[in-house]
Design a protein around this nucleic acid. Structure first.
Lengths: 224, 224
DNA sequence: AGCTTTCTTCACACTTTCTTAACACCCTTA
DNA sequence: TAAGGGTGTTAAGAAAGTGTGAAGAAAGCT
């Protein structure tokens, strides 16, 4: 049985969520604010967290950041706002998905299933982008079935790019994932590691393309 | 059935509006001055408000400011010609659009539809305007499913316009959002970036329409 | 400790983007 | 017709961002 933690200050919303989730067999924990939510998360180790962005005392984003310092539990954001910026920020901070209030129960449950499965399939230990293959289990990379030796940082970096192959990943997203918990400006070093990766991958593998002022994109199979 | 509140001191104008809107199935409420208008708005909770700027006793701007302290209801401004400054002020105080007296019924109804159109809840942080699609998470723009390369400033600019698609955004609003924390006059550069965007979006996407003296409007789907 | 590997920092050349300026082109008004 | 405000367009210098090599610092290994 999956355990779900609901962090929302509105009791009405918590009750609604509880009923919807219990009918699916979830075991429910509740918290009415951010600090309590973190405490509950640490204690009960839920399999999924539903987090409201509009919390008192501590913003939902802040809760998410703190949580991500020690946990990879799937997080579904509950947002009332139509403000895209907040949603983007939440996703960049490691949220898995979000629903906008008001939402339908069916949709909510569907999204929960998706993000939990995504976490599960992430245990699938490899990512393949064209001729490049990343073995996440052994931290090994290979190009045309030939092994390429990558340092830990380089591997973390190419992993972020490969997970979003074909799409732009912003510098902030990269830095947050490769250097978690750092607040010093790491964009200097990022350039260097990109440089190293390009040399090691060379022309035969997927190219790392820079999008000036935004971030980088790993060319996926079939692009020119 | 949508409820509309008309705030105008001329009885003739109220009657004209009432007839035009009732033929579209609106339920109409009327108020002859500002204080009455606010009272009616609070009581009936209309879905849209038509507000005349030239009111006795309390200026339309004042009514709008008071209203915005507690309500996000869409407001369409009714103004006479040559009140450019007042129009700009109204838009920056939270009005959604305006029509200039005398106006055609068709135009009035079209604008009402636009400002009332509720942005359906999106589950991806993206904005879609006709054939143009903005992916806010990845900072990617696409036109007819084909990617368009935009610079950071261009992306920020089209984002502001797209968030208010079909409505007018004043130059000040644009500049404040695209160049936050700037106090130098950026309106020179704005024209240049608008120009670049028009070239990149071309004729196949939504047009960026200039409203002289006011600002810009991104043509939304269905407009000519 | 000594050695190797890896990471970070710095400097500088290079590319892309932004800003500024100049001028042409409306449209409106006198 | 001319004048003026606001806008569209283009080009060039300024600013910001990026690629690259190397050297010192930090971390890991024997």
């Amino acid at each position: 049985m999956s355990k779900a933690l609901i962090i929302d200050d509105e009791q009405q919303m918590r009750r609604l969520l509880r009923m919807a989730l219990e009918s699916r067999g979830y075991e429910i924990y509740e918290a009415a604010d951010g600090p309590l939510g973190l405490q509950e998360a640490a204690f009960h180790r839920p399999d999924v967290i539903l987090l409201d962005l509009g919390l008192p005392s501590m913003s939902g984003i802040e809760v998410l950041k703190r949580l991500r310092e020690w946990s990879d539990v799937p997080v579904l954001i509950l947002s009332v706002r139509d403000q895209e910026n907040v949603k983007v920020e939440a996703l960049e901070c490691g949220a898995d998905d979000y629903v906008t209030k008001p939402f339908g129960t069916a949709e909510l449950l569907a999204r929960l299933t998706v993000i939990q499965r995504r976490r599960f399939t992430r245990q699938n230990p490899e990512i393949i982008v064209g001729k490049l293959r990343l073995d996440l289990l052994h931290h090994e990379a290979s190009l045309n079935a030939e092994q390429v030796k990558l340092t830990p940082t380089e591997f973390a970096l190419i992993k972020v790019l490969a997970e979003h192959a074909g799409r732009i990943v912003t510098q902030n997203q990269i830095i947050r994932q490769v250097w978690p918990g750092q607040q010093t400006d790491q964009s200097e070093g990022l350039r260097v590691h990109i440089n190293h990766l390009r040399k090691k991958i060379g022309a035969s593998g997927p190219q790392i393309i820079n999008e000036p002022g935004i971030g980088y994109r790993l060319e996926s199979e079939g692009e020119s």
